[in-house]
Design a binder for these strands. Structure first.
Length: 588
RNA sequence: GAACCGGUAGCUCAAUGGUAGAGCAGCGGCCUUUUAAGCCGCGGGUUCCGGGUUCGAGUCCCGGCCGGUUCACCA
């Protein structure tokens, strides 16, 4: 039985309590980080080696006396009355030697109730053992926390050639995502990747801060979803009696700030899109968006390049343990799966229409040529000419874009928020950055003409209604148009997918590996249970709506209410007679 | 949404249709500088779930759940 393990640990927990030891200690005495302690010891050794020794005198073994560390015990080697345990903290592993003579009988009684996975604090003298391991010889032991579950054990060892090897522990990909805490506990490389992710974010904030950008937070709950083309998550605000949408993009709010007088703003936060999950998509993903008054898509290209390069520097500097200034140009070469990406080189710029001509052999504006080529390639034939052209570009040119490439000058027809080029209204000032065919950034010279913006919004809504497009906006954000009427300076705007950037900079091939807690289907929750849950929420929502006075006043309400009585009755049966769950919340 | 692959002890993995095993971890014992410590002994299983075929199913068949990969869709 799996309970066997837990039972043994519970018994030890109780044994600790009867020894007068709190198995979940409240306070931890002062301590040092393992890595710092180890390097201090090595410095001491280096000094001892060069220090002159008096003739005939025995050189003393270098010792750091009375030092303490705290961490999780993940290995236990018992050697008669001597014991070696490996204590891990965030910075590394330290071997600890325990012996009744030095640490005392009481502490050894505590040790007897120690399991792998428990947390301890130890104080003692740091020395090297005869086998060469830096070791803390404990004189004090304090028990900190009992782990009732058995941890998966890290297996790191030296092979015959003396190389450090890792044996697989906790290899089930699914469980590693679901129980990321165990994955992190066991896999140092996973922790390292998330440290690098933090560096990427730090790098971006640093870079933008230096350029005078203000970091802001705009709403995550929107009453009208906008700023991108995507299906939103819908939620409901009880007190306000209104539906709300998890934001699909912060764009329209950030541009309101330009109207308000901020000239450089950025936001790093999640966007939510109700779409499928795969190697490059998670329902919530982190986006950096910035807006620069008096900028345009040219200034956005410069800042994109600078930003990515700066983040890359910080990542490499952290990996190599050297200052960013000390990095060589070759350090900005990143291996990403099969390909090698040089982020030190200036990014290529290529016109949309030129790429289409080069790789598909067609003119962007020629309906017949685009359609014929798409047909030839067996693409789904979209009615909309420029959408079809976009698919054609995606199928032909994008896979060829391995090194960072700004694809510039998009057709205006597929860019509702972008300013058209002055000399050609069919083309607009937008770019997307591709690396190895993956979209990394999207930017444009922002459309700031209220009348034109309203026209495009209305066209989108009308088109969406006509084509039953679930992703098309359902409503025009009139307040945004009002904001533009108040006057927004010419501006450049940029969005960078942070998760994908982290994938590139950490040589990772699925977005789940750069997300601490990627979304997964619920376990042990079958379709029937899921359907019941949804039905209950639907019933509750409807019941709440029925209590609203506005609805009661509408003609036909009585009939609706009567019909609903039946629905409630059936619901009760269906949901297993949970009376309490289907009683109208405000019914009187 | 489709195809393929996978799910066995706490962890990593075995097991031609024929009594479900090993290493680590656990429990008991020996060992005072080990390090994937070692040695002796002992426990440990809803083989993802539900059906079916069979004298007999971890294994074969059908359905379902969860995951991975590729494709499609999406941006």
């Amino acid at each position: 039985m799996s309970n066997e393990y837990r039972r043994a640990r519970e018994q030890k927990r109780d044994a600790l309590a009867s020894l007068g030891v709190n198995p979940y200690a409240v306070r931890t005495p002062a301590r040092e980080a393992v890595a710092g302690l180890k390097s201090q010891f090595e410095d001491l050794e280096a000094k001892a080696k060069t220090a002159p020794v008096a003739a005939g005198a025995q050189p003393e073994a270098p010792t750091l006396a009375g030092r303490a560390v705290a961490g999780r015990v993940l290995a236990n080697r018992k050697m008669g009355k001597a014991v070696f345990v490996d204590v891990y903290d965030q910075t590394g592993k330290l071997q600890v030697y325990l012996n009744a003579k030095q640490v005392g009988e009481q502490a050894m009684a505590v040790y007897d109730n120690l399991d792998l996975g428990d947390f301890v604090w130890v104080r003692g003298n740091v020395q090297r053992t005869r086998t060469g391991e830096v070791t803390l010889f404990a004189t004090e032991l304090k028990f900190l926390t009992k782990a009732l579950a058995v941890p998966p054990l890290p297996r790191e060892y030296k092979d015959e050639q003396g190389n450090t090897r890792h044996a697989t522990a906790f290899a089930d990909v699914e469980q590693r995502y679901r129980q990321r805490y165990l994955d992190l506990m066991v896999h140092g490389d996973v922790r390292a990747r998330f440290e690098l992710r933090s560096k990427v974010l730090q790098g971006i904030r640093e870079f933008l801060g230096q350029k005078g950008y203000l970091e802001v937070e705009t709403p995550m709950l929107h009453s009208i979803p906008g700023g991108a083309r995507a299906r939103p998550f819908i939620t409901h605000h009880n007190a306000l009696h209104m539906n709300m949408y998890m934001r699909i993009a912060p764009e329209l709010y950030l541009k309101r700030l330009l109207v308000g007088g901020f000239e450089r703003v950025f936001e790093i936060n999640r966007n939510f899109r109700n779409e499928g999950i795969d190697a490059t998509h998670n329902p919530e993903f982190t986006m950096m968006e910035l807006y620069e008054a008096y900028g345009d898509y040219h200034s956005m290209m410069e800042i994109t390049e600078g930003l990515i390069r700066h983040a890359a520097r910080l990542v490499r500097s952290h990996e190599k343990g050297v200052a960013p200034e000390a990095l060589a140009p070759a350090d900005l070469v990143f291996h990403w799966g099969e390909v090698v990406i040089d982020l030190g080189q200036p990014f290529r710029r290529a016109r949309y229409a030129d790429l289409l001509r080069e790789h598909a052999g067609v003119d962007l504006h020629s309906r017949d040529a685009v359609r014929a080529k798409a047909k030839e390639l067996g693409l789904e034939l979209h009615d909309d000419h420029y959408k079809l052209a976009d698919q054609l570009l995606e199928a032909t040119a994008l896979p060829k874009l391995v090194q960072p490439t700004f694809v510039i000058d998009y057709p205006t027809a597929i860019c509702p928020l972008t300013k058209a080029c002055e000399d050609n209204p069919a083309i607009c000032e937008r770019f997307e950055l591709f690396v190895n065919a993956v979209e990394f950034a999207n930017a444009f010279s922002e459309l700031n003409e209220p009348v034109e913006q309203l026209r495009r919004f209305e066209e989108q809504v009308a088109m969406g209604l006509k084509t039953q497009d679930v992703e098309a906006p359902k409503e025009v954000d009139h307040d945004y148009v009002h904001a533009l009427e108040a006057g927004m300076p010419p501006a450049g705007g940029l969005g960078v997918g942070i998760d994908r950037l982290c994938m590139l900079l950490t040589n990772t091939h699925t977005i789940r590996d750069v997300l601490l807690f990627p979304h997964m289907k619920r376990e042990g929750h079958d379709q029937a249970a899921g359907a019941k849950q949804r039905a209950r929420i639907a019933a509750e929502t409807l019941l709440e709506e029925l209590t609203s006075p506005e609805l009661r006043r509408l003609p036909g309400f009585d009939q609706l209410a009567k019909q609903f009585e039946h629905l409630v009755e059936f619901s009760r049966k269906l949901l297993g007679n949970p009376h309490a769950e289907v009683v109208p919340p405000h019914s009187k």
